[in-house]
Measured scan of single mutants.
Amino acid sequence: GIDPFTGEAIAKFNFNGDTQVEMSFRKGERITLLRQVDENWYEGRIPGTSRQGIFPITYVDVIKRPL
Rank of each mutant, 00 (worst) to 15 (best):
I2Y: 13
W41F: 08
D61P: 00
N16A: 10
I31C: 01
G48R: 06
K12L: 11
V62E: 04
V21S: 13
A9K: 02
I46M: 05
I54G: 01
T32P: 00
L33Q: 03
I46R: 01
L67C: 15
R51P: 00
V21H: 14
N14P: 08
I31S: 00
I57G: 11
L67K: 15
V62Y: 04
Y42V: 06
V21M: 14
N16T: 12
G1I: 13
F5M: 13
I2L: 12
E39C: 15
F25D: 01
I31G: 00
G44A: 02
L33A: 03
E22Q: 11
I57Q: 08
P56W: 02
F15S: 01
R65W: 15
L33G: 04
E22A: 07
G28P: 00
G1Y: 09
Y42M: 12
D3F: 10
R45T: 10
Q52C: 13
G17M: 04
L33D: 05
T19N: 12
L67N: 15
E8S: 11
P47V: 10
I46N: 01
D38W: 07
G28C: 09
N14G: 06
F15R: 03
G7A: 06
R26S: 14
I46G: 01
F13T: 10
I46W: 01
T32S: 08
M23Y: 01
P56A: 02
R45M: 11
S24C: 07
G7H: 14
D61E: 14
G1H: 11
R30S: 08
G1V: 12
T49V: 03
I31H: 00
E39D: 12
G17C: 06
R35G: 07
I57V: 13
Q52F: 11
E43Q: 07
E39Y: 09
R51L: 04
E39I: 09
Q36Y: 08
D61T: 12
I54T: 06
D61G: 04
E8A: 09
F15Y: 12
K12S: 06
I57Y: 05
Q52G: 06
K64A: 04
W41P: 00
K64G: 04
R45G: 05
I10K: 05
N14E: 10
K12I: 10
R51W: 02
W41A: 04
E22V: 04
F15C: 02
R26F: 13
Q36W: 07
I57F: 05
Q36A: 08
Y42E: 01
F5C: 15
R26G: 08
R51G: 02
L34M: 08
I54C: 12
N16M: 12
L67H: 15
K64C: 15
G53M: 02
V37T: 04
V62M: 06
S24E: 04
T58V: 12
F15L: 02
E43D: 06
Y42D: 00
N40H: 14
E8D: 08
F25A: 02
F13S: 09
D38G: 10
P66N: 10
V62P: 05
W41Q: 06
L67E: 15
S24W: 06
W41R: 07
Q36C: 11
E39M: 10
R65N: 14
V37I: 13
S24N: 07
I54L: 11
F55R: 00
Y42W: 14
G17W: 02
P47F: 10
D18C: 15
I57L: 09
T49D: 06
E39G: 11
L67W: 04
G1L: 11
V60K: 00
N40T: 12
L34Q: 06
A9F: 04
M23V: 05
D3L: 11
G7E: 08
D18M: 13
V60F: 02
T32N: 08
N40V: 13
N14Q: 07
T49Y: 02
R26M: 14
M23P: 01
V62H: 04
Q52Y: 10
K64Q: 05
R26H: 13
Y59L: 10
Y59T: 08
Q36F: 07
A11F: 05
K64D: 10
Y42I: 06
W41K: 05
P47L: 10
A11V: 02
A9I: 04
